[in-house]
Nucleic acid binder design. Structure first.
Length: 130
DNA sequence: CGCCTGACGAAAC
DNA sequence: GGTTTCGCCAGGC
């Protein structure tokens, strides 16, 4: 794949010292926003791409704050490692996440992404952090 | 200051 | 092979 993009989104610059977490948040958002339409990825995959492979929870936690992030982060394209729509309850509506995914061509059945492995988008494989 | 919780994940039982 | 526990790391109480 010669389409290795380079994420240079230097987030809003951490104006405050010791704002590593904020930087982490922005990195998560940056990756999430790069998820192609009709594709999905997992929290762990994003975390791994950022170097926090052992802290998938932090990714999800960061997503919790995505509601205040601008522009809006396509959190609906992020599911857990089995393709389940975890966290759909945190959206505007319990069916909002599924709704958005289906709208983009992603089949969802029983709160789970169909052909997850097929449409899975691995940030660490498609992106390059230089 | 310590304990519980949490949009996850993997190992142990 | 399904269920339970532990680890991550930060925030809330």
């Amino acid at each position: 794949m010669a389409t290795r993009k380079t994420v240079t989104e230097k987030p809003r610059a951490v104006k405050q010292p010791g704002a590593d977490t904020l930087n982490f948040f922005e990195q998560v958002y940056a990756v999430a926003r790069l998820i192609p339409k009709g594709r999905v990825t997992s929290y762990g995959a994003i975390g791994a791409a950022l170097g926090a492979k052992s802290s998938a929870r932090m990714v999800g936690w960061a997503m919790n704050d995505c509601r205040t992030a601008r522009p809006k982060v396509p959190a609906h394209r992020v599911v857990n490692r089995v393709g389940m729509l975890s966290g759909k309850h945190h959206f505007e509506g319990p069916s909002e996440k599924e709704k958005l995914l289906v709208k983009e061509g992603v089949k969802v059945k029983n709160d789970q992404v169909v052909d997850f492995a097929k449409i899975f988008w691995d940030p660490s494989a498609e992106l390059s952090f230089d």
